[in-house]
């Protein structure tokens, strides 16, 4: 069975190179990927901030994944929201209620596993022959991936990926990039992001989330590399 790769809004609109490199790396691992034919936001932090209807929206994508092996994600936020939805939908009443809504759109949720590509890759890193990365990177963890009770990734996953490629790792602490402050306080977001770039001491930020990349690269002009790009380069290294 094929996996469905879900980019999330930020990757869909700003970072197709992340999705494209993830596809190539997963294909190298022999993973079959289905085409995501319909896209809708996971509901992000916006819908949960106003209504429990966030579950309908998250469940739509999960319903698409129900027909496949599962859903592979690229952003921390989507991963956390969709996993919360999977947990909520274990309740039979909630699942029936949501499925009544989804039926009007011609889909049904019957269960889906949500796995961030970083988690997927961490599990299967030894299957790839990686070498020769000349990059110097500092890790920016995707915070949302580590929501308590819903995380599968180990905190050192990005470090392990970097190490496997031969890239030089620069210690930069483990603070949040501050990207989501952009929604309510742009100056605060820029201040938080600048601090992360300073902590990276001139190394490229190794990221696994479109939101981190948006602030650090698009807003602040920092050097950013997605972990899938690093892995893809090292496959050919």
């Amino acid at each position: 069975m094929a996996w469905l790769l879900y980019p999330g809004c930020m990757v869909l609109t700003h970072f197709p190179e992340y999705e494209a490199s993830a596809r190539r790396v997963l294909t190298e691992l022999g993973v079959e990927l289905a085409e995501l034919e319909r896209f809708v936001c996971c509901s992000s932090v916006f819908v949960p901030s106003v209504s429990d209807e966030w579950l309908n929206m998250a469940a739509y994508t999960l319903a698409l994944a129900s027909e496949h092996e599962g859903l592979l994600t690229l952003c921390g936020t989507c991963t956390a929201v969709l996993r919360r939805a999977v947990r909520e939908l274990e309740n039979r009443e909630a699942r029936s209620r949501v499925n009544r809504v989804l039926a009007e759109l011609g889909v049904e949720y019957t269960g889906a596993e949500v796995v961030h590509v970083l988690e997927f890759l961490e599990d299967r890193l030894q299957e790839l022959e990686l070498r020769g990365s000349k990059r110097r990177v500092a890790v920016q963890n995707p915070c949302n991936l580590y929501l308590p009770g819903l995380s599968r990734a180990s905190r050192g996953a990005l470090e392990r990926v970097a190490h496997a490629t031969g890239a030089e790792l620069v210690e930069a602490g483990d603070e949040c990039c501050g990207s989501a402050f952009m929604l309510v306080d742009e100056e605060l977001a820029l201040r938080a992001g600048r601090r992360r770039l300073e902590e990276a001491k001139g190394a490229e930020m190794l990221v696994a989330c479109g939101n981190c990349a948006f602030l650090l690269q698009k807003q602040l002009g920092g050097e950013v590399v997605f972990f899938t790009e690093l892995v893809e380069e090292a496959l050919n290294g």
Partner: peptide
């Protein structure tokens, strides 16, 4: 309550 990056270090 909106000045939050949703990093959930608080929850941990």
């Amino acid at each position: 309550v909106f000045t939050c990056t949703a990093c959930w270090r608080c929850a941990r």
